[in-house]
């Protein structure tokens, strides 16, 4: 435990405000037209995690695999 405490802290997470604004705009458009999908207590709070972490991470993994396959 002391090793963990003395270790150098990981750098702070930085997410540009623009990404939040873009996610909110996307949320509003989807929520306005499909109310049951996002305006509920399960999907609503998870939307930010989905758009700013899960989708970009999954996209990066797919891109890496495609790049690796296309290499001779």
């Amino acid at each position: 435990m002391s090793n963990a405490s003395e270790a150098t802290p990981a750098p702070q997470v930085r997410i540009p405000v623009g990404w939040y604004v873009a996610a909110l705009a996307l949320y509003l458009v989807i929520a306005y037209f499909t109310k049951t999908v996002l305006l509920n207590w399960v999907m609503g709070p998870l939307f930010l995690l989905l758009t700013l972490y899960l989708v970009p991470t999954a996209a990066a993994v797919v891109r890496r695999r495609l790049t690796a396959r296309s290499r001779p």
């Binding site: 949320y27 609503g44 939307f47 930010l48 972490y53």
Partner: peptide, 9 residues
């Protein structure tokens, strides 16, 4: 993002 998600929601 999970923590901030409630404010966002």
């Amino acid at each position: 993002l999970l923590y901030q998600g409630l404010m966002f929601y």
